[in-house]
Amino acid sequence: MPHDFPSMLKELHLKVTPRRLATLAALATATTYVSPEEVHKRLQGEFARIGLPTVYRNLEELAAGGVITKVLHPNRQLYYYFCPNRSHHHHFVCLACRTVEDLECCGLEEVEKQVGGRVLSHIVQANGLCQACLQAGREAAA
């Protein structure tokens, strides 16, 4: 199912530009999470003059709007993943094959019960090895 990237950008009150559209397309066609440098490399074939700061800025704007997801890797590198699921959910990140899976469980209500207060924001990401990587004996990438 094709994505309506122009509408996504308009909903975020972001100007629809060829670079933003190409950034979304690059992320949507990736099957794993990707680094800003990988996105930059993909876009260089389409745009002779695109700087890494432009890529970073576009990725941050899209992540702030919830169109893409930031993946916080244990190596302290920041990666990005296009997730079309707009409902409240979290992610399981395989550190070997770099796939990202939706987690429908949250546990926020339980946290609020334990602290006796109200959580205003939260980030939940589970890192590990997916079943296929476990069975293949793969190790987490550095």
Rank of each mutant, 00 (worst) to 15 (best):
P6Y: 10
C83Y: 06
T69V: 11
K70N: 13
A96R: 03
K113I: 09
V119D: 11
L134N: 03
E46Y: 05
L72V: 14
T29L: 12
R98Q: 14
H122C: 11
K10G: 07
Q125I: 08
A63F: 04
Q77C: 11
N75M: 04
V34I: 14
K41C: 00
K113E: 11
H13G: 15
V111M: 03
H89T: 07
V16Y: 08
L103T: 13
R19V: 00
V16G: 10
N127G: 03
I68R: 02
R118K: 13
A142G: 09
N85Q: 11
H90S: 14
I123H: 10
V124F: 09
N127Y: 06
E37N: 13
S7L: 02
A25V: 08
A126N: 11
F82T: 00
S35A: 12
N85A: 11
G116A: 12
I123F: 04
E11C: 04
T99S: 12
A22T: 02
R57N: 09
Q131L: 06
G137M: 04
I68M: 03
D102K: 12
Y81H: 10
Q44D: 15
K41L: 03
N58V: 03
V100S: 03
L9I: 10
C83M: 06
R49M: 09
Y79M: 02
P36T: 14
E104Y: 15
V100E: 02
T23I: 02
E139L: 13
G65Y: 10
G65K: 05
T17A: 07
F92D: 01
L59E: 01
E61Y: 02
L62I: 07
G65S: 10
Y33Q: 07
E112C: 07
R19S: 01
P18G: 12
H3L: 15
Q44V: 15
H88M: 00
V55A: 01
R86M: 09
V124M: 07
K10L: 11
H73S: 04
R86P: 05
Y81W: 09
N58Q: 06
C106G: 14
C97Q: 10
Y33V: 03
H73G: 05
H90Q: 01
V93A: 09
G128I: 07
L12G: 02
Q77Y: 04
C105G: 09
L134E: 14
C130Y: 01
L120K: 11
S121T: 09
H40T: 05
H89Q: 06
H88L: 07
A141I: 02
G65N: 09
P18C: 08
A141L: 12
R57E: 05
V100I: 12
E38S: 14
T31Y: 08
C105T: 13
V124G: 08
V124A: 14
V71I: 13
H88E: 15
Q135L: 12
F82Q: 02
L62V: 12
R98N: 07
Y56R: 15
A142R: 08
C94G: 06
A25Y: 08
R76G: 07
V100Q: 04
A22E: 00
G116R: 10
P18I: 09
V93S: 06
V67L: 04
R20E: 03
M8E: 11
T99K: 08
V55W: 05
G137T: 10
R138M: 10
L72S: 14
E61W: 05
C94W: 00
L129A: 08
C94E: 02
K41T: 05
C130L: 04
K113N: 13
S121V: 03
S35Y: 06
L62D: 00
H91Q: 08
A96K: 08
